[in-house]
């Protein structure tokens, strides 16, 4: 059984939950930008939650199926067509052998996740099928999906059409998107006024936004506490002796445009970081289009922990609901 990629859309890649364990060598975890949506897509088609799916950015691919399977598309609102007939997002449906899955124009969000019963079954690299093109790992020979590719799909016996996730449980960012930030790391490099400005200013997603990081523009430039730069750091006040970067960390080269490192993060470098977006809000970033308005909101560790628990609870509710019989059946 394979998927024939008739057209790959704008940027479509194979992603699962990533390959933790190699960041100390500069190889990032990778995996779905919106892990919540990937997990739910897999639940809908009866896969284990960490199975590889297609991550679609902005523009849908066109795919022909050689065998009947169950499919679900979550994440961004990308209207679904099977042989030209509409299907619901965040729901499981059948695609028969010979049928073609395609999409209309994006309505909301940025990344859709296509799960197929059995999962994409390309070879793993360092324990994951996630595509990391910079290091030529995972995906299709280390690259994104391209027109003409034929992707293997695994076996499944556990899937059924007609499952759906309640709208209240579809987790997408608000407008403006609220990204909660725990100040820390090199926060002390900023003046107090500048630190306050960062949280009060309105930002929007800049055109340079990809799996490595999202850049934001529109806020006031940051100002630094005066100091003599330490040996080895470099002359700019935003420079530090090259250190580790963590997922979600916010660097601001030259104090101008903040960059939030995401799943394909570089593992280190010489720019100061002012803190990190909390783990619960990382999925939201993956759903932001260029120019989307954003507010950074200050949060403490207790708040970060409860946001994480809330996200986990939502997944648990979906898990329980999908274990029951489909509601649409008589």
């Amino acid at each position: 059984m394979t998927l024939k990629i008739i057209s790959h859309g704008l940027s479509t890649s194979i992603q699962d939950l990533g390959r933790p364990g190699y960041f100390h060598l500069g190889i990032p975890m990778g995996g779905a930008m919106d892990r919540f949506s990937l997990r739910v897509a897999n639940m809908l088609v009866g896969n284990p939650e960490d199975v590889a799916c297609l991550e679609v950015v902005f523009l849908g691919p066109k795919i022909e199926f050689t065998k009947s399977v169950i499919v679900a598309v979550t994440g961004a609102e990308l209207p679904i067509l099977v042989d030209g007939e509409p299907r619901d997002t965040w729901s499981s449906f059948e695609v028969k052998a010979g049928q073609v899955l395609s999409f209309e124009f994006l309505q909301a969000g940025a990344r859709a996740y296509i799960a197929i019963s059995g999962g994409i079954d390309t070879p793993t690299a360092l324990g994951s099928r996630s595509t990391y093109p910079i290091g030529a790992l995972g995906g299709v020979d280390g690259r994104n999906v391209q027109t003409g590719d034929e992707l293997p799909v695994g076996d499944s016996s556990n899937s059924k059409a007609g499952l759906s996730v309640d709208e209240k449980l579809r987790r997408l960012p608000d407008t403006p998107a609220r990204l909660r930030v725990l100040p820390g790391l090199y926060w002390h490099r900023l003046t107090e006024a500048s630190g306050n400005n960062f949280f009060s200013d309105e930002w929007s997603v800049a055109p340079e936004a990809d799996r490595m990081g999202y850049r934001f523009k529109g806020g006031r430039p940051l100002e630094f506490v005066d100091r003599e730069q330490p040996f080895g750091a470099g002359a700019d006040p935003s420079n530090i002796v090259d250190g580790c970067y963590c997922y979600g960390s916010i660097q601001v080269p030259g104090g101008k445009e903040p960059i939030v490192l995401h799943r394909d993060a570089v593992s280190g470098g010489g720019y100061f970081t002012l803190g990190a977006v909390i783990s619960a809000d990382m999925d939201f970033i993956g759903q932001l289009q260029p120019h989307a308005p954003v507010k950074f909101e200050k949060i403490d560790m207790a708040g970060a922990n409860s946001a994480r628990a809330e996200r986990k609870q939502m997944l648990e509710i979906i898990r329980k609901e999908l274990r029951q019989e489909p509601k649409t059946q008589p």
Binding site: W187, G243, C246, A276
Partner: peptide
């Protein structure tokens, strides 16, 4: 010592480089 979000601890041994 500082937190990097809710999933990381970051430890800066020194702000300048030395062996």
């Amino acid at each position: 010592y500082t937190h990097g979000g809710d999933e990381h601890i970051y430890v800066e041994i020194d702000d300048e480089m030395s062996l």
